[in-house]
Design a protein around this nucleic acid. Sequence first.
DNA 1: ATAAAAGACTACTAAATCTATATACTTTAT
DNA 2: ATAAAGTATATAGATTTAGTAGTCTTTTAT
Lengths: 147, 147
Amino acid sequence: MLSKKTRYALKALVVLGKNFGGAPMQISKIASEEHIPKKFLEQILLDMRNAGLLYSKKGSGGGYGLVKDPAEIYMVQVLRLTGGPVALLPCVSLNFYQKCDECTNEATCGVRDVFVEVRNATLKILSETSIADVINREEILIKNFEE
Amino acid sequence: MLSKKTRYALKALVVLGKNFGGAPMQISKIASEEHIPKKFLEQILLDMRNAGLLYSKKGSGGGYGLVKDPAEIYMVQVLRLTGGPVALLPCVSLNFYQKCDECTNEATCGVRDVFVEVRNATLKILSETSIADVINREEILIKNFEE
DNA sequence: ATAAAAGACTACTAAATCTATATACTTTAT
DNA sequence: ATAAAGTATATAGATTTAGTAGTCTTTTAT
């Protein structure tokens, strides 16, 4: 499961994506719109700012905005940035690799082999889907929902 | 990430799969072979027995064995049985569904939509791969490894 | 110049979950 | 009868996650 941190980050980026090009958006606005605890969101946005994904502006009229076009921000980036595991086993993770202590020979582990496949399938989707894609999907969903 | 419980369960089932048709295998043997804490493994095997996946025999010469052919036990079953989440979001899980409290309209959530896709891809692999397949994979891996 | 707005940064706490261990009991083979 | 092996429940310890609190800094408006 993804952590709340990762979930909140994705939600916030979608909101900021919709706002791309406009004036910076305040944390409290994002927080109330998306039902995210404000103080928690502060930390998350800060992380993403420090990673270069967002810019921030202090003072009156300040807030957060996307640095890049939402079409260039991929979901996998957000997962990794917020520490979300893409792989289901540590020994299969590309960015957070860790040996399984119980395993004697990783190279011949059949369970691992299956989860490499799972990781590849997941990674394919998450590295092909951008925040802009998510926004597009939402528009389609809303259309279908209203019918 | 999968829990250790799930990982241990899968490992144990692979060992029991290799032993299918033979005499019951003792917990302590499985535990030492796979480097799993014995007492922890006891609980896990019990769970799987209560779920009808394993049989057990008490007393001298007792132990555990698979009830069904390893070709008929699918990885997804093991994940679900040991509480492992297949989905990356609670609102996307088929067997452990839970509403995301922050979400206002699930039906039009783009993030969710993407993770439905991820779940489907994962599920496809895990519900097509049996313990017997894992054992086969291991044989292939060993062959390639020895070359 | 000053006050208010808004983010930056650090620390901490509470809750949940996971992993593992301990203890006592039951069944079965010899 | 005894030893081997699983059954069952409780609990402890560790780790992670989620969330809160408080203070500091920067910027804008007046």
